[in-house]
Design a protein around this nucleic acid. Sequence first.
DNA 1: TGTTAATAACTGACCAGTCAGTTATGAAGA
DNA 2: TCTTCATAACTGACTGGTCAGTTATTAACA
Lengths: 223, 223
Amino acid sequence: MPDRAPRTEPEALPRWRRRKDARPQEIVAAAMDVFAERGFAAARLEEVAARAGVSKGTLYLYFPSKDELFKAVIRAAILPNLEQAEAMAAAAAGPCFPVLERLLRMVAHLVATTRAATIPRLVIAEAGNFPDLAAFYHREVIRRAFGVLASLLQRGIASGEFRPVDVDPTVRLIVAPLLMSAVWRTSFDGLDGEPPLDVPALVETHIDNLGRVLLRDAGETTP
Amino acid sequence: MPDRAPRTEPEALPRWRRRKDARPQEIVAAAMDVFAERGFAAARLEEVAARAGVSKGTLYLYFPSKDELFKAVIRAAILPNLEQAEAMAAAAAGPCFPVLERLLRMVAHLVATTRAATIPRLVIAEAGNFPDLAAFYHREVIRRAFGVLASLLQRGIASGEFRPVDVDPTVRLIVAPLLMSAVWRTSFDGLDGEPPLDVPALVETHIDNLGRVLLRDAGETTP
DNA sequence: TGTTAATAACTGACCAGTCAGTTATGAAGA
DNA sequence: TCTTCATAACTGACTGGTCAGTTATTAACA
């Protein structure tokens, strides 16, 4: 190995900086990556620290435990999107089906392109070991997401736009393919040289099916 | 603590028995329970051994590693049901939709009542850490299950019973609610005093929806 | 100069996998 | 039928390594 890059900096580069407000986000971002790659149990805090450019001890200045760090990751990845969805559903006034379409495409886009798609898998995996984490996710994410869809369905039924379907099973049937896509992408995609999951095609078929199921005037959704 | 059960057996009760052929099944059954409760990573082989009534060393006489034990659990829980489903689909001759109904109700029953329902969650959870395990499950379970549904759909389309839907997305849309039910039951059921997931209601709604989506003569599936 | 963000070495618990030793069991010989 | 005796099933204490969480110390910076 020839001579190393000449160390021409007697400059007193400080060994670290104090950056009290930037640290939490950076740590959460690093944790998101590591949890997504390894799963919660197998994720090593040493690695999270390394990717965040700090030492392991620093993590404990900002988060009391691995569990709490995990909860922070979930909050950061999910809540902004959830709030956006709630706003989208609350703002719309006219017919409900186009709103439903927009919501589904938005979630599909998240599933297909962002790291947030790994969150459901992580929660599902650890639900058994961390019941309070499962309860947290159920309360803060699932219940709210279901609520958005349920009230949209109820509005559509009340206005006569939708058939009078059973709301709770229908909400679950609407969500299931998206959840499965998120899980699939982060568990089985790219195995055995299979083509990757075509999320947009899946969602468009799903939307078309939902049109046939929900709308009073059955038939093509786009004539 | 009053006098213990009178030890009226000077009989030389052996400390253990040689039971070479019964052991593997008993170990797999115990492992199924422990994996279901704790997840793969958190499952302790000491506990598996205890529940199987053997010592930890004995596990290694029959299974070379924790991974291989896990694969054996998956095989034992899934393959019989998969073979039953394949037989059911292959045997049927008449219209396809009733076959689809029967398949869905069969899987729903498994999801609602058996421990096999925890397998998808376990695989999903560990897919990241054990890519070969994910590949194994993809090859031995998912591909075969999808195959059953895909050929059923193709037959229905060819005979004119079904609309000419896109087969691959439709297969996934058929499976997703069942998969989600299995995951739900083993992750979130019984949280916050929520009522447990009503799998039969979900499946009946799903079947009704599929009738509207698949059948040429749209409308009620049962007139 | 005092305060505190940040470090890095450390601890203690946990657990998959190993292996030297123990015992059930059936068969061969008395 | 009653001993040996060989063997393979089985045991459980042990090892080596991992990793969450702690703490004594250092250095940035107001």
